[in-house]
Amino acid sequence: MRILSWAYLVLIFVFILLPVVALVVFSFQDGRLPVPPLKGFTLKWYAEVIADRDLMAALWNSFIVAFGSSAVALVLGFLAASGLARVALPGSVVMRGVLIAPMTVSYLIIGLGLLQIFNKLGLRPSLLATGIGHVVINLPLCFSIIYAAMGEHQRNALRAARDLGAREWQVLALVSAPMLAPALAASFFLSVTFSWDEFIIAFLLTRFDITLPVEIWSMLRSGLSPKTNAIGSLVFLVSVAIVVTLELTLFRKPRP
């Protein structure tokens, strides 16, 4: 039994990690194709990636869109959650439902809808349009994480702050936000990672300035290359770095 369960564990990890491992390993391939056999070890693909202006521009664009849209989604989600947690309005349940609804709609549908609306409004496909699209998909996420983190304890602390003379913005900035710091950080970084590798909306809503996933897709059209593995490995490295940092800082000791 013991051996079986270990074997099961190993299989699971192989299943989950094999694609990533293959990606990283063949980014060092000394040859033209990222497929076995591994002919040798080279860093030249990484050098090419760094020298590629388009790729670096796309990387930077992705960075701006991810952090910008996540910041907006975070602020909007926090304010919505604060408002809905504070007062019980007749339509509270419906409002919460509508806020979370975009989570259930596929990115393709959201992208198509936005494309049509932006056309009508005269907003050209751009990084701004993509950023707005990412706010649409990440706001429900931020809202639900933050709303779930607000409990009775939080409510009472906010009451105490008002009682001691805090204005509403001071209540939010000095008491509510610091108390919710772990939830705020979690929702922000999750939004960043979702936005970072989002393809469909970015593909539909960008034209001249494109994000990294769109750039990688256009590179793939000209066939497989260890260069795409190299850029993929770099993106993976960023995600790992974020997760590890979160693990080591925010989620290490849950506050009582």
Partner: peptide, 18 residues
Amino acid sequence: PRGRPTTTMFQDYALFPH
């Protein structure tokens, strides 16, 4: 509340944990 000359000691203390 913030305009009143009153303050409250709450049942669960409601201290600011941070």
